[in-house]
Design a protein around this nucleic acid. Structure first.
Length: 256
DNA sequence: ATGGTGGATGGTCCA
C-alpha cells in the first residue's frame, strides 16, 4: 500500500502533472496541499477517471487540502474541531484501510517574529492538542503534508544560511518536535540517515538545479505502522517536469 | 548584488 503527500502549489495549474504522476506511481492515497482552489472548482473528474475518490477542503486563492483515495473512504475532520468556515483550510482527515490519515498544510510563517510566524507556532500547538483529544497513539495514525519546517541540520542544504531563519528557526523546530512527541516516527528517517535529501526547492536562482533545498514535506507514523513501513522516499522526478510545483511528492510503502 | 520565479489576481499578497 502506497500513501503519498504532495504540495502542488495550485491544483488547477498542476492537474496535468498530478494526473501524469498518478498514472506512473498509482498510490492508494494521495494527500494534497496548497490547492488554491474552492471546492466547486476542484477538477474531480480527472481523478475519478483514474479510480480516485476526492475529499476536498478547499479555499479560494490560498491554502486548501484534499485526500484522494482509491475506492471510498469516510469523511473525517475538515479543519480543527469547532473552527468555523472563515478559518484557513489547512487540515483534512480520513481513515483508509484502518489507518487514520491526517493531511496538513502547516502555515509558512513568512518571517521569524512576524504575525504570521506567531500564527504558525500557535497552529502547531493546536495540532498537538488535536491529536491529544481526537486520536489514540496506540492505533495506526499517519500524519503527512507540508510541515513547512526542516526538522534537523541534515534537512537543509546550508545550515549556516538557514540557521534562525523561517522554516528552520529553533522555536519552529521545537513546536514541530512537540507534535512528534505525541508518538510519531519520521518514516523517511527509518530508512535514510544521510542529509542532502530535499522535498522543496525555491523556484528562484536555480535552486533545484543546484540541489539547494529543504526537507519540509513529511510522512510521520505511529508505532503501529513503523514495522509495516517497508520504504519511504522522495520522488524528485516531477520537479524536473514542465511547469513543476516547487515541492516534490513523498511516498511511504506499507505492508498491509 | 537585497535580486531571483511562480500562482492567483487584476495591485499586490503569498510562498
Amino acid at each position: 500500500m502506497l500513501i503519498a503527500t504532495w504540495n502542488v502549489n495550485s491544483i488547477l495549474a498542476r492537474v496535468a502533472n498530478v494526473a501524469r504522476w498518478l498514472d506512473l506511481v498509482k498510490p492508494d492515497v494521495l494527500c494534497l496541499q496548497e490547492l488554491k482552489c474552492a471546492d466547486d472548482k476542484f477538477p474531480t473528474e480527472v481523478f475519478q477517471e483514474r479510480g480516485y475518490q476526492c475529499q476536498i477542503f478547499g479555499q479560494p486563492t490560498y491554502n486548501g487540502v484534499a485526500i484522494l483515495t482509491r475506492g471510498t473512504c469516510p469523511t473525517g475532520h475538515r479543519g480543527y474541531p469547532g473552527d468555523d468556515e472563515t478559518q484557513q483550510s489547512r487540515l483534512i482527515a480520513s481513515t483508509v484501510n484502518g489507518i487514520n490519515v491526517v493531511d496538513v498544510y502547516v502555515p509558512n510563517g513568512q518571517m521569524v517574529g512576524s504575525e504570521k510566524y506567531a500564527f504558525k507556532l500557535e497552529w502547531l500547538k493546536r495540532l498537538r492538542e488535536f491529536f491529544d483529544v481526537n486520536y489514540d497513539n496506540s492505533t495506526p495514525v499517519l500524519l503527512c503534508g507540508d510541515f513547512n519546517v526542516a526538522p534537523d541540520e541534515r534537512d537543509v542544504h546550508d545550515v549556516r544560511l538557514w540557521q534562525g531563519r523561517i522554516l528552520f528557526s529553533d522555536p519552529e523546530r521545537a513546536a514541530l518536535q512537540h507534535v512528534k512527541d505525541w508518538g510519531f516516527t519520521d518514516a523517511f528517517r527509518l530508512h535514510t540517515e544521510e542529509g542532502g535529501h530535499f522535498s522543496w526547492w525555491d523556484y528562484r536562482a536555480g535552486m533545484f538545479r543546484r540541489n539547494m533545498g529543504l526537507r519540509i514535506d513529511h510522512i510521520w507514523i505511529s508505532e503501529a505502522l513503523v514495522q509495516k513501513n517497508v520504504r519511504t522516499w522522495i520522488d524528485v522526478e516531477p520537479r524536473k517536469w514542465e511547469k513543476p510545483s516547487d515541492h516534490a511528492p513523498v511516498i511511504a510503502e506499507f505492508d498491509v
